[in-house]
Amino acid sequence: MTTLDHSALIKSAVSAVLEASKLADAARATQVLNTKGNLRDIVTQTDLDISEMLSKSLGVTGLPVVSEEADVPGGMTPAQCWVIDPIDGTVNFAHGLPMFALSAGLLDHGQFELGVVCAPALDELYFTLNSERALLNGRPFSHTHRPREQALVAASFSAKGSAAQYELFEAVNESTRGCLRSGTAALNICWAAAGKLQAAYGFNAKLWDVAGALAVARAAGCEIAVRWEPNTLTLDYCVGSAEAVQHVRSLAQSKGLWN
């Protein structure tokens, strides 16, 4: 196993994501280029441009880069790699809504070590300081764990949400302060990490949607539950306050979504 220089790598990632975010700044409310088999799964030229820019700039670090907009060699995630999502929340982005984010995460043998998530339209920049601290706009923060009764939760639906996922959404919404669907898993998780939400969850999520944000959540001291699919590119997750995470998991188990 190669030992990675986290302090150098996070600097590269912050720099790369900020540079790429300027492309998103310049192209707000852009045209949809293509759909990927589902009305909610779309791609814009900006996604492709950012993907190319991030792949190049992070590729300089010598680590492979896994991107939503590029094929993964062999369909398996390398043990040590960058995982990038050029724009998480492309539908929001294409409609001129501010809830979208660029994301880069360093995955090291299944661990979410480093992360950068930038929401340019919200002026929010989340990143990990090495792998120890979570920062929002340069200020360290940690998650304050709250009970279920005080929990506001956010859900992310995969491209094709099952009936059970909609039932879970209703159950969470009725048993907490509410369940949101913001359209961006990365920001849901970062908002949970920062304590704006108390939990964020998703099923059949793609690794690139959550890799950077889960590193931020881990560094912030969140409870994190992850269940990987064998292909290591898809996962279920629930993250946030310990009690809220346990509550969502219990409900998910009762719906047959988390066994």
Partner: peptide, 15 residues
């Protein structure tokens, strides 16, 4: 570290 990894415009904006 932030100074080194951000250009001035980004530092001004986010930090």
């Amino acid at each position: 570290m932030m100074r080194e990894s951000m250009d001035t415009a980004s530092f001004n904006r986010y930090v």
